[in-house]
Design a protein around this nucleic acid. Sequence first.
DNA 1: TTGTAAGCGTTATCAC
DNA 2: GTGATAACGCTTACAA
Lengths: 326, 326
Amino acid sequence: MPNMKEIAKQAGVGIGTVSRVINNSGYVKKETREKVEKVIRVNNYVPNEIARSMTSQKNNIVAFILPNSTHLFFGELLYHVEEELFKSGYKVMICNSSQKIEKEMIYLDMLKNNRVDAVILLTNNDIEKYLDKTLPILSFDRRFTDIPFVASDNYQGGILAAQKLIKAGCKNFMFIGDDAQGDNTPVYTEVTKRRKGFIEYLNKNNFTNIVNIEYPLGDYFIGCDEVYEMIKDYPNIDGIFTVSDAVAVAAIQALQKMGKRVPEDVKVIGFDGGRSFLNLGMRLTSISQSPELIAKAIGEIITSFYAKKTIQNQIIPVTFCDGDTA
Amino acid sequence: MPNMKEIAKQAGVGIGTVSRVINNSGYVKKETREKVEKVIRVNNYVPNEIARSMTSQKNNIVAFILPNSTHLFFGELLYHVEEELFKSGYKVMICNSSQKIEKEMIYLDMLKNNRVDAVILLTNNDIEKYLDKTLPILSFDRRFTDIPFVASDNYQGGILAAQKLIKAGCKNFMFIGDDAQGDNTPVYTEVTKRRKGFIEYLNKNNFTNIVNIEYPLGDYFIGCDEVYEMIKDYPNIDGIFTVSDAVAVAAIQALQKMGKRVPEDVKVIGFDGGRSFLNLGMRLTSISQSPELIAKAIGEIITSFYAKKTIQNQIIPVTFCDGDTA
DNA sequence: TTGTAAGCGTTATCAC
DNA sequence: GTGATAACGCTTACAA
């Protein structure tokens, strides 16, 4: 691999001139430029980005820390975040934390040692005390003091679900989720607003006694049997909203085990968007998050970190997504 | 952020000594070491990895070029690849190519400009002529001359599917897939062995006239209507094997549209593993690829690139995964 | 316009 | 054992 010095030598110019040609910075006489460009072409020369980072102390890499890329919504989000940041010249380094705080911290440390320029943090862990607030960190769906965040309009999502279930004639409501991390960790998550919006809207419409199922924060996958144990003692429930599509699916299976028909006996609404291309049954009714819009907001915040613009938290609209289960 | 010079100054030692302490290289007197370590701790000093890369010309980042992270199997593979490489100290940069060769080439170029140390390439594009064979590139499920590759035992997968369908009493077989890229691009893909293993095994067992549906290489998602158009003129088929779970699901929906019952009238087997946690219907019968084992093989090859070990292609076993559709 | 030289923050080689 | 010092390959003043 030739370096800049070699190119300069071959072109019979100084190393600074080569740099100027490459970066289109400063004045370069037309003929000189052409001469240098030719040598670059002939040698198939590409500037060494490590050396470039050496002076700029930036490398245009953003780390995305998320629980996993297996969960459909995370895979979608990752896809769009990469697409969006790519437009701004950023590359994405992925960290599957599996919710382990130790792994999250290793990736967070990469900010300090200049491996990455910024971090997108999607976690339920109580990591606040380890966050250096002076570093370019952005959080999704969680609130940390002095860290900008992006979140879906979870509260509105809860309202939309409530409205749909009321309209469908439900009378006895239930919410199922592991969003209430307040009981398990001190992390303030935006996700719990799904529950809040749902319940508060129902209350406002004179539906009280909402059955509120909270289970310990899990790994985003939950089995039918687990949900069955949670709901089996509530046979008269006829409208369920869950914290995610994954839970909704498990709930529907649990209901079937209880001998209930969905949506005839019980209506179920999930959260995320019901987009599964491997589904062989009913289409799940759901509240849809937009990974595109979320990614766009994330991209804006990331670029503003280095543009010294003021950074605004962003709440992304959600939409009702019709299906067969409610 | 203090640098090594600053630490050296504060500790009253030379910069070389600090380096030796950090890297545990060369001799350092115990007291000197302790003194330096204390200053490091006090200053919260972390070595700048960009500068380290400057001398080593390595940065322990591997780029994973794949069509998308949305497709369940890709999300799983990505997850395990990151996990596996993490153990060896590598970080993974993700590139969602969306099958666009231009984007693939941009990430491939990062090898030349030292942004990444190695590339994992998962593509259907005819990119062979752009590959610099002297660079550490590894391919999954595709063969390029002089590029090591990892693939599932697709041929055996085809056999397993054939065996199951024969045992289930099927007589009239069909394969559906966009794997036959030979017609569209000159890329030699290992995936087409799914078809080959299936058909050859059937032939060997005196089943001929296998209906062979090939459609142009797509984006991994296919709709029920598209598949319906492909299969509607074959009403007497009773055993179908598809190139992927996604196609199997679309096929089952198409069959239902044709008034066929699955598995009573027609049995269907997909490929990937039938692992969907958002499925509200039958469990798909499938041939399971192991993302863990694939990731492990990929990890071995990546590490051997820099260990100067000889590099072996690896074929990863597949297993039959029982379900409700065959 | 262009060449030279001083960084950028490490690692590694050498004298001492 | 340890401290200078020369790379590593670029960018960016600064002088010419």
